[in-house]
Write a protein that binds this DNA or RNA. Sequence first.
DNA 1: GGCGGCGGTGATACACTGTAACACTCGCGC
DNA 2: GCGCGAGTGTTACAGTGTATCACCGCCGCC
Lengths: 161, 161
Amino acid sequence: MHRHEGHDACPGDAVDMLARAESLCRERGLQFTPLRRDVLEVVAASGKAQGAYDIAERLSVPGKRVAPVSVYRALDFLMEQGLVHRIASRNAFIPCAHVHAPGEGVIFLICRTCGGVDEESSQDLESGLGRTLERAGFTPAHSILEVEGDCGLCRDRKQAS
Amino acid sequence: MHRHEGHDACPGDAVDMLARAESLCRERGLQFTPLRRDVLEVVAASGKAQGAYDIAERLSVPGKRVAPVSVYRALDFLMEQGLVHRIASRNAFIPCAHVHAPGEGVIFLICRTCGGVDEESSQDLESGLGRTLERAGFTPAHSILEVEGDCGLCRDRKQAS
DNA sequence: GGCGGCGGTGATACACTGTAACACTCGCGC
DNA sequence: GCGCGAGTGTTACAGTGTATCACCGCCGCC
Ligand SMILES: [Zn+2]
Ligand SMILES: [Zn+2]
Ligand SMILES: [Zn+2]
Ligand SMILES: [Zn+2]
């Protein structure tokens, strides 16, 4: 699912993200403005989930402040377009390089050591959840599945020491 | 899983909760103080998830204010003892009448119409998640699974109208 | 009795997260 | 030119959660 066996910051990925986002917006007739581009770049360049206020601070330079509210608006847009995800348990945002089917479930694996977030999807798990919901008589609209723990890299690093 | 085919407020449940909490604290040599009792009572008496500030307001009477910070401390205690759960997607808390095995996964079904929260567990789903995590080389410590949608009662109510 | 520690609570202040409201600009079609 | 809509800047505010200190009651110890 992740090309690099981990979730390190890959500068190349950020460039890919921006190019993909631009063409995707052009296709849909939407504006990929400088602010939206900058916000996506910050989210994509860091290997870990970024908070909105962190992004705002990161984009601010002396004399030119970017307010958090502007960042939130850009993030709302990027989420609608499926370019970023929100990690509810962290109040933070990660880039998404995938194309998700509507209603497709996604699992976020959040490393508590390095802060990296990996994104998985599992048809197996999805169907299990569907059965459980049906048994409970519940009609799902939207679901959150976030797992916190240690990623493979951090686990190995701990064992070595 | 839920005795009443839904998640209405059941005054009897609240009484049961308090009795169980008291005996549980006595067993563990912990204090079930009046504040902790009151907070649990408010959480248990309402059929829906309660925010910490709501609880504080509910417990406040003219001349005797309960500060949110006190409520948070009581909720921390109650969560440690497994008497309440936190619903991350709502920043709210629900009572728990179950006994959970350590590491057992729980699914919260949150009705966006009536605000009720049902709690399910599924061994089936659990094992599917375990396989997915193993495949990704991830060691889980803690997971959140929350589904928002319509409960059976609200769905029927909508169809009738 | 005095005394110190400890858990729980009260109270204030603060940090972090997110939204509402309003004004302004820019580009585009009429 | 003019109106309109989308995007942004700015301010203020609401909601959620934590840090810190002080106080109190209890219990064990000297
Ligand atoms: Zn994704
Ligand atoms: Zn890691
Ligand atoms: Zn439970
Ligand atoms: Zn309902």
